[in-house]
């Protein structure tokens, strides 16, 4: 694995917007959540976009989150629902109203016993994965921004050992929770991620759009956008802040003006040496930074705004869900 070798292998085009992606164990199939409210199963053995919608009672709006444990896959949508799918039969098996507003993300705990969902009702809800029973409902995120407008709860990540999870919102507030007790054990604030324009346009953009625990669970990376001059567009620096969980302090701040827009997802290299950030504005980017000093290692454009990625441990296969396409990338070293 060499991050400087990051390159695109394939692109599959479509007319819809793809917000989330999950892969089968053998990398032959991908499941993507779409703006047309479908969850598609994509045949990755085909070079073109060969896909079929999953059957049964699914979503009614954008499908924005996906997680899988074995053959149980759960998706979340802006229709306020969580949907359980059987990946073998490609059919939905359960559907519940989980929140009162858009659900932004859903994640399994590593043991597959629980799922966690977050939504713009600013609630963090924990569910029994096998029964869909609600077993926890907490929040540390204000419903309204300081300017009295609705806030949004964008980002969620579960630590590699499953002991903790973190949530982050539009105004840059991060809460870290103990999974078992649902007690908040740490919090951070990244106010530069929230770009309220009090004078020129009088609304805001930004927010923390991505969270990622380091492989050792000691650091937490948060991604979003920095100061935007014209908030009509996403013309601000992509921004990452890394926090140390034990000391409760920010340890790194990265702002990149070469690739502007939102950092929609962050992935750590397995030894915690570097991070891969994906996102974009009208078009997308993939950027690799040293996790210690924030120096840029490698950076490439992506055709269309990147909403999400799936990757294997060594980044030999990296699949991206984007605006009107999905792409396949690798960091495999090229044979000379």
């Amino acid at each position: 694995m060499d991050p400087s070798q990051l390159r695109q292998i394939a692109q599959r085009k479509c007319q819809d917007i793809l917000f989330c992606v999950e892969l089968s164990d053998d990398n032959s199939e991908a499941w993507v959540g779409s703006s047309d409210a479908n969850v598609y199963c994509v045949d990755l053995t085909s070079e073109s976009m060969a896909r079929v919608p999953m059957g049964g009672d699914g979503h009614a709006s954008y499908v924005t989150g996906v997680c899988r444990y074995g053959n149980v896959m759960i998706t979340s949508g802006y229709d306020k629902h969580l949907v359980w799918w059987d990946t073998d039969s490609r059919e939905s098996v359960r559907k519940i109203v989980a929140h009162n507003k858009w659900i932004r993300s859903v994640a399994f705990t590593p043991d597959g016993s629980r799922i966690i969902s977050i939504a713009d009702d600013m609630r963090v809800r924990v569910w029994e994965a096998s029964t869909a029973d609600l077993i926890g409902d907490v929040s540390d995120h204000a419903v309204m921004t300081q300017q009295n407008y609705p806030s949004m709860l964008y980002a969620l990540d579960v630590s590699p050992d499953g002991e903790l999870f973190a949530t982050a919102d539009r105004v840059g507030h991060i809460a870290v929770w103990e999974t078992e007790s649902l007690k908040k054990i740490q919090q951070f604030d990244a106010p530069k991620m929230y770009t309220w324009d009090p004078k020129q346009r009088r609304h805001s953009t930004g927010g923390i759009r991505s969270l990622a625990f380091s492989p050792d669970g000691k650091r937490l990376a948060a991604g979003g956008i920095g100061h935007v001059g014209n908030i009509d567009h996403l013309g601000g620096p992509s921004r990452i802040e890394i926090f140390d969980l034990e000391s409760g302090s920010q340890v790194l701040e990265i702002e990149d003006n070469k690739k502007q827009g939102l950092v929609e997802q962050i992935a750590w290299q397995k030894d915690g040496e570097w991070i891969l950030a994906v996102g974009g504005a009208n078009n997308g980017f993939l950027s690799v930074f040293h996790a210690g000093d924030g120096k840029l290692i490698h950076q490439v454009d992506h055709p269309g705004h990147v909403h999400a990625m799936w990757h294997d441990e060594d980044f030999l296969n990296l699949h991206i869900a984007a605006h009107e396409n999905m792409t396949h990338w690798t960091m495999r070293e090229q044979e000379v």
Binding site: Y149, T205, D232
Partner: peptide, 20 residues
């Protein structure tokens, strides 16, 4: 009431401004 010119993040912008 300005500014509704949502070339980016139209849906987030309208969540804010439509509420107002």
């Amino acid at each position: 009431r300005a500014w509704w010119d949502s070339h980016g993040q139209n849906f987030e912008t309208h969540q804010e401004l439509c509420a107002d």
